[in-house]
Structure formats: C-alpha cells, structure tokens
C-alpha cells in the first residue's frame, strides 16, 4: 500500500455552498453539501476542516444537527486569511471539506433521560447548536431542557430566528443575556454567570454542557459547583488552535491530550486535573 492507495487523511472532499448568509458584522452562515452526495455523518459537537485552494484550511465546528443528512451548516467568524476569503463567497461556490473529526456530546448515553443545562457564550453557540437541535429533534428522550446564551452585545447574537423560537417554546427554558445592552435591548444585561443563580436544577439528574470563550469556563464552573453539579456530569467543548485534525501536527495538544482527537468535547472530570486545560 502506498500513499496513493492508503486513505489520504489530508485530502479534502469537494463540497458546494448551498447558501451563504451574513449573520453579523463578523459571522457568516454557510449551508454546505458534499459533492459526492454522501452525508457528512457527524455527531453533535464534532468539527470539520474547511479549505480553499490557494488560501488555506481551518477547523470549524459543525453547527447543525446530524438529523439533517442532505447538508450541514457552519458559522464562521472573519478573523484570518481563510475566513476573510470565505466571507466573500457566494451561493454555489465550492470549498474543500475533511472530516468530521473529534469527540461529540454523549446524546445517546449519558444525556439520555437527563435534564440538560446548556451554557453557551458567544461563538460557543455554534458547536452547541448541533447538540441543542439534536436534543430538540428527539425531545422525548430528554427531561427538562434549559438553554443559557450570552453574547457581548445584542448585535452579536447568532441564529436570531431560532432564538426567538426557543423563547416561545413551552417545553424548554431559554435564558439570554448580553454584556452590554443597547436602546433596543429589553432583556438581561450582564455576563452569562448572572443567569445561573436563578436556575433551579436537580444536580443528580442534570447534565451540563458548556461552550464559550476560554475565560468563561472557570466562572461557569464556579456557578455549577454552587449548583452542586458533579464534575462527572459536566461536558465542555474546548477551543484550541488545531491544524491537522487527526492528532499528528501537535498544535492543539493539552498536556498529553489532543483537542482534535481526545476532544474537543471533554467530560470535565477527565480534564479537571489536566494543567493548561481550562
């Protein structure tokens, strides 16, 4: 077997952008389909590598539920060469996709039958939406569902139509806050941990799922501890600078762990003692 016959883990598959839609000043939404027609086959919380020939490649969370198999969705912040170029693309343009990679949230075992507490900060909603959607698609499999979402400002809120829908639903509790409000904002103001003391949960039958900017984790963990949540029942998706996605290049290494392979979704009890993780 030579390099041509061995499965090439670095070779992207061609894919087409079915829809490109600016969400905010910085974030753009993409609906993507693999040209081969095969479903991406991801699990909630996984990521894929998206690339443009001549520009580069980056790991991006998959934002849609695997329940939809004819396409998948990503929301990408314009922060570098590749993401800037992606921002200029139009419906029908083509990209390269590798993946899915990494671990996922345990929707089919640990989470089943449990109450779910989602804590999403800023872009953290993007990967978390794949799990939220999945659990809403299988609503009867789970107990109470509480979603907390915090952004810096009202203009940075993502998936606003969906947020409105979540707010109206009677079978979930949806709480929102912004760090700084504006004239149009009538909701909560303050960081996401301000929402948490008002939430009443049964720590023994709840699974908490956390994703947000690095600074958010330790403060959210303090609140979860006050709620008497055990580390065993907290799952978090960690951000790292990843490159290859397949545990070789070393970039995303957290001590002996690779965020791209052992993560990005970790059970907190498994990383509580890992230095540099949180």
């Amino acid at each position: 077997m030579d390099a041509r016959t061995m499965k090439d883990i670095y070779l992207p598959e061609p894919a087409t952008l079915l829809e490109v839609k600016p969400f905010t000043e910085m974030e753009t939404y993409y609906r993507i389909k693999l040209d081969s027609g095969r479903p991406l086959g991801h699990k909630p919380g996984q990521f894929a590598e998206i690339s443009l020939a001549g520009i580069g490649e980056a790991p991006i969370s998959i934002s849609s539920s695997p329940v939809k198999t004819d396409h998948f969705e990503m929301v990408i912040r314009n922060v570098g060469n590749l993401t800037r170029a992606l921002r200029t693309l139009k419906d029908g343009d083509r990209v390269g996709i590798r993946g899915p990679f990494g671990t996922s949230f345990p929707v089919n075992d640990v989470m089943k039958g449990k109450d779910l507490l989602y804590i999403c900060g800023g872009m953290g909603l993007v990967p978390m939406r794949s799990v939220i959607q999945y659990t809403l698609d299988h609503r009867d499999d789970y107990g109470e569902i509480t979603i907390c979402y915090g952004t810096k400002s009202p203009s940075e809120r993502l998936f606003t139509d969906e947020l409105e829908n979540w707010g109206k639903r009677k079978d979930i509790a949806f709480l929102e806050t912004v760090d700084r409000g504006d004239d149009s904002w009538k909701g909560n103001v303050g960081v996401i941990t301000k929402l948490m003391p008002g939430i009443s949960i049964d720590p023994h039958k709840t699974v908490a799922l956390v994703c947000g900017p690095p600074i958010m984790y330790k403060f959210v963990l303090l609140e979860l501890r006050k709620m008497e949540m055990s580390n065993e029942n907290i799952y978090m998706s960690l951000e790292r600078h990843m490159k290859c996605g397949v545990g070789k290049c070393g970039h995303c290494q957290i001590n002996g762990l690779y965020a791209c392979q052992d993560g990005p979704v970790f059970k907190y009890s498994e990383i509580a003692d890992v230095k540099e993780a949180i």
């Binding site: 600078h241 490159k243 290859c244 290049c249």
Partner: peptide
C-alpha cells in the same frame, strides 16, 4: 507541523512544514 497553501496564478499546493511549540503563534487562537 503546520499546513499551508502556496500558489501562483494557475496552480497551487498544500504543504506541510515543520513548526515548533517554541513559537507563541503555535498555540495562538484566532
């Protein structure tokens, strides 16, 4: 290693190049 794209007007290539954990950019998030 890092993975980068190089191109001319007509063609390009994706390369992997040695990288190092001694560089601050190595772990820098976007």
């Amino acid at each position: 290693f890092d993975i980068q794209d190089e191109k001319t007007l007509e063609k390009g290539r994706r390369v992997r190049v040695w990288d190092s954990c001694a560089f601050p950019e190595y772990t820098l998030h976007a």
